[in-house]
Amino acid sequence: MDQIMSNLGLLFEFPIVNLKIILDGVMIGSLFALAAYGLALVWGVMNVKNLAQGDFVIAGGYVSWFLVKTEWLQSLLGVSDNFVILLGVLVAFVVMGAIGWVCYKLIITKVIERDLFTSLLATFGLAIMMAQIMNLLFGSDTQSLKLEYDTLYFADGLIDLPIAKLIGVCMAAGLALAVVLFMKTSRMGQAIRATAQDSRAARVLGIDTEKVYAFTFSLNAAICGAAGAIIVMVWVIQPFYGITYSVRAFVIVTAAGLGNLPGVIAAGLGIGAAEQYGSHIFGIGYQQAIAVLLLLIILIYKLLRQRRLRQVLQ
């Protein structure tokens, strides 16, 4: 209790710290939002709740890490580590897109018409498999990549802004924007949205929904992969870290609702900031508990609101 009070005291004694906490939260939140957007896409379009979401993120991180550590590109093109690390985001996007497609053809397509429980089990199994395969391939040690950029300091060094993090956030924002534009303007994007609204009607109107499903799942894996490649250059990855990203993605999607992109982004950034505040005040051990607690509060709030709406209907 004393510790909590003194932590709260620090927030008032050094108000600038609030700004730092919010900045840190927004930066990590932008990556949560990315993973959550992919989850919402798959959930909305094919009604599959992908429990392997976080593992796709981590796998993307390992793709980029592996690319940098083999030093194959560096010697072939004569480029620096930095360049390969940044390129890794693109490579992870492509490679994970392909892996996502394979996963769809092998597993997801078989469970898509089944009940909720079957698809949950299947994706849970996929999550375990992926984590173990990564463990066997890359070992259980934590890995990360380091971009050779400086850190910017403000307010007597109390606020630090590593340029690597800024680049990561900008890439995440760019990717989100690109996906939104794609969904709005391209034929495939339109087909995906049509399938999400009513898959039977879409099929009647000549949309190959099987192709749409495969593409959607593969796009989701690609988005996750890019998010993972950004995470490995800003934070650390480990084969069994997937679950933390899965949990946050679920919290965000549940809070924001399906098909609500601005909501997903706002919820992502909000959860990031809330977790940072929570870990400052209650201790870092409670970071994930904050996310789950928020989910609980949101669900209760939604339940109450629903009940009120129902009463109005009666």
Partner: peptide
């Protein structure tokens, strides 16, 4: 599953 300890370092 620690990946960020900025809160402590602040």
């Amino acid at each position: 599953d620690l990946s960020d300890m900025t809160a402590i370092l602040t």
